[in-house]
Design a binder for these strands. Structure first.
Lengths: 354, 354
DNA sequence: GAAAAATATTGGAGCGCTCCAAAAAGCGGT
DNA sequence: ACCGCTTTTTGGAGCGCTCCAATATTTTTC
């Protein structure tokens, strides 16, 4: 690959002049400019290599996006939620003329990816892994984290998940529901983990920060209706796992309302219901979480705890791009009632205790 | 920001040793290593800056993805087709440990974005703009282009769109359809452009390479059934334009079969049909193009000319990553018949000529 | 205990570029 | 032909790092 020097030599001018021809052509005499361009063309020189400029200028003009959880980029794009995050981040980058880099990596390579990413900052999408946060901090670049509060010196944006959970439960108890099951998010890849009431390891659930707020909201609103979250089974499934729906129906056939932690899970439940011929909301009501575009397109359309996902990511990107004083934001949620929830099925249906 | 030299000075060692501490720690005496790390910590040095390495090593270990058409990244992620391309490219990058950079830019800034993108190669997703191709060529980096054949010295992958179009038409004529409308892709942003039979500017249509093959396939298969594409209205709409469905129904109420150039358009038609209470396929049949995941989830599920979108992008990414001799590939398509096509509605329904 | 071998550390060169102060060239007027 | 002025061109310095041959230090061996 020829360099500025090579072109300069070929055209009989200095490196500086060649640089000017490409970057500030008005500074160089038209005739000389022409000669330099000719030399560049004949050498196959395609313009100043950005690598060189980079070192001098010090900015990549790019931000890195780290997919939610431990997912690969491909999985993120597949997930309705991840996709909207991506859109939001992309639109902020668009507006700022910056590039969005999708930072990839397996559990082993992630730290290296972060260390080497050619970016001026990071957005961490719903990251749970503390090591990832540590790796990013080590880069001393601005970053923003989604759905985790990492203290006052870190940009973070999260939704008011507690209120969302409360609204969801109130909606359902208001309709008369008493038998619930919670479909929660498994942090690792694997089959569904079922926590039935009274089983001790349920205590572990509270350890997950993201779920914590939602569970707390569920708890609070169930108590209002004279119920207890202690009596509600919790099933953890990996997002996108097509077996999530089956797990719910197999383990909790008597539930009349399924509360999920994401629309994606809720959609899986809807799919499984259709396969089994289970009527929604006739037989069981389903509530999603996030308010993705997909949720409005399901059959029936999904009742969900919605928020502005893309807006959240856009804001995060802006925080990173601005590189100002760290802020912590909480975004509002709104229960969007659609067709997937209704009154509980008739009490005539026999059921055994769940 | 401290540098290797700063840390070395603080620890009383040379730059080279500090570099070793971070890159090949086994080379340096544990005690010294500890001292250097301590110095780094107290200076707030977060490890070698990738900018420096870059210049030396010469590789970004990243490829740039240029969205289809003239769309911004956010739009690409929204489109079912774009999203699957992205997934495919991402999975190839994942496997190669490379980063995927989403190269953004408006029409004015695109050239600059390409010139400055910190990548080792490009994937051009269904790009139509000849300037974009020229800009990329100027970088002298490997690249692959989707759905355009840019000659033997350029990597390209396209689908056998002609066969797909033929299969779609045969399927419909086989069901007895005689009155078609083609929903084509408008290359710019704006309202639907309607080309009715006999109107002269229809000739322009053939100018679009992408559409050309499909139109040719339509033509061919219509001829087999004793019909002529000259009698079929063509409506061009911007992908994602929610008014596409309305344009079709408003301008061609008597068509019994709608052939689209993308699933996204077909989905829009389905949505509009539902709004208007038009039965699909009872009143009109709809065929999509691409075979996106969404097409299987619509009501009714969409009959579509499917291909492996993600696989196409993955292949393109691999070509770029490999940087071998340019190849041109044609991928097979397959007509997937689902619920959106059926026999034409009864001839009893009155209709005026379209 | 000295030489040889193995191991650790150093610092110059250079990656391709931009910036900038200084030098050179051009120009109009005497 | 020379001066002062403006416009154009030059080439050194330096961005932060890695590589590597050379040098310094430690360990082993006889």
């Amino acid at each position: 690959m020829p360099t500025l020097d090579d072109v300069g030599r070929a055209a009989g001018v200095s490196r500086g002049t060649v640089s000017n021809v490409f970057n500030r052509p008005e500074l160089v005499r038209p005739e000389l400019r022409e000669r330099v361009q000719e030399a560049a063309r004949s050498l196959g020189y395609g313009g100043p290599d950005p690598k060189g400029r980079l070192l001098k200028e010090g900015k990549f003009n790019a931000i890195g996006f780290m997919p939610p959880g431990a997912y690969a980029i491909a999985e993120m794009v597949r997930s309705p939620y991840g996709r909207e995050l991506l859109m939001g981040a992309a639109s902020a980058c668009d507006a700022a003329g910056a590039t969005l880099s999708l930072v990839n990596g397996t559990d082993e390579t992630r730290a290296a990816s972060i260390r080497e990413a050619l970016v001026d900052g990071f957005i961490l999408g719903n990251v749970v892994d503390i090591d990832v946060i540590a790796s990013v901090k080590r880069r001393r670049l601005p970053f923003a984290i989604l759905e985790s509060d990492a203290g006052p010196d870190v940009n973070s944006i999260r939704i008011d998940a507690r209120s969302g959970a409360v609204a969801a439960v109130r909606h359902l108890t208001g309709l008369g529901h008493k038998r619930f099951v919670i479909l929660s998010i498994r942090r690792t890849v694997g089959p569904a983990i079922v926590h039935m009431p009274g089983v001790t390891d349920r205590a572990l659930l509270a350890g997950f920060a993201l779920d914590h707020q939602r569970l707390q909201g569920f708890d609070e609103a169930l108590a209002e209706a004279g119920l207890s979250i202690e009596d509600v089974p919790v099933i953890e499934t990996t997002p996108g796992d097509p077996a999530a729906g089956a797990a719910v129906f197999d383990h909790c056939p008597e539930a009349t309302a399924i509360m999920t932690m994401s629309d994606w899970q809720a959609i899986t439940v809807l799919d499984e219901a259709q396969r089994r011929g289970i009527a929604i909301p006739g037989h069981v009501s389903v509530v999603g979480f996030d308010g993705t575009a997909e949720a409005a397109r399901t059959m029936p359309p999904l009742t969900t705890v919605a928020h502005d996902i893309a807006g959240k990511a856009r804001l995060a990107a802006e925080m990173v791009l601005e590189n100002g004083k760290p802020r912590q934001m909480v975004m509002p949620v709104e229960l969007v009632v659609r067709g997937s929830t209704g009154e509980p099925r008739s009490r005539l249906t026999a059921f055994r205790s769940c």
